[in-house]
Amino acid sequence: MTAFAIRRLMQSAIVVLVMSVIVFFGVNIVGDPVDMLINPEADQEDIEIAIRALGLDKPIGEQYLFFLKNAFSGNLGKSFIFGEPALQLILQRMPATMELALAALFMAIVLGIPLGLYAGLRPHSPFSRITMATSILGFSLPTFWVGLMMIMVFAVMLGWLPSTGRGDEATFLGVTSSLFTMNGLSHMVMPALNLALLKISLVIRLTRAGTREAVLQDYIKFARAKGLRQSRIIFVHLLKNILIPVITVLGLEFGGLIAFSVVTETIFAWPGMGKLLIDSIQQLDRPVIVAYLIIIVLIFVVLNLIVDIMYSVLDPRVRLGDRKA
């Protein structure tokens, strides 16, 4: 188990290293940040001072080595735009993105699993058919379009929910979040649902497919032949088996929720990491882009690790480590 975790962390260090090389040189090819940053009216001398201050006068390889050296001491560089450490900029905005992603994940679980379970157990009922048809829409409609439609209907036409921003925050058990105020929640409903829509559909379809497969298995028939109550068969025998793929996918998709909340955050003006990334890309703020991607890679690696551990908890046939089979 420990050996497994260490090996996993070594592998992820290599992933982070390779990724940083690609992004660092990639962003350099896209354009010169100097053009964006410096007042075109400035004279040559001012420009050169600025370039030197940002460390952009050196060859790109040297810049990278310099970045790498600092990165090992936890310094991922300063934002060209804000002049603040990139890491700090991102971490400031992380809670907003995290609470959005968690809210979306929560919706995906509490809506997706029961709906999928019902659709799997009663595949021919009208409600199941409607659920499945809707889930196809959830899959295929583009997030930005759904987001705009939601704003139009619920914010503009009906006026029920606020369309932008994060709302009031409150501190509970040492955690500051807008989840703890009504105003904050009302701001969160639409962006979270928008972000969750695809995942809800995914969970519905996964759960339904798993249920349809599992009910035909002998162990379910045997459980029925034992005379167990329907509720026990469904919530213990069936659910524990179908949760294995659902948890795996959700764990991986959670990383996606965090990394790709960019669209939702932009539409709902949610002050999270995704919005910061979009702004940074537009301004070629390389340190922020690189730092953001490194953090995302780390999140994915950690999530993968958690999923693997969860897997071994849920499925007794899976044992982590190097023990011989």
Partner: peptide, 25 residues
């Protein structure tokens, strides 16, 4: 019927590798 199943009339299935739930002790 539930009360009779497994209580008064029990069943044994063909394939023992399939009849026990793999994720329960």
């Amino acid at each position: 019927l539930r009360h009779i199943r497994g209580n008064r009339i029990a069943m044994i299935f063909q394939d023992p590798t399939m009849t026990l739930n793999p994720v329960l002790r």
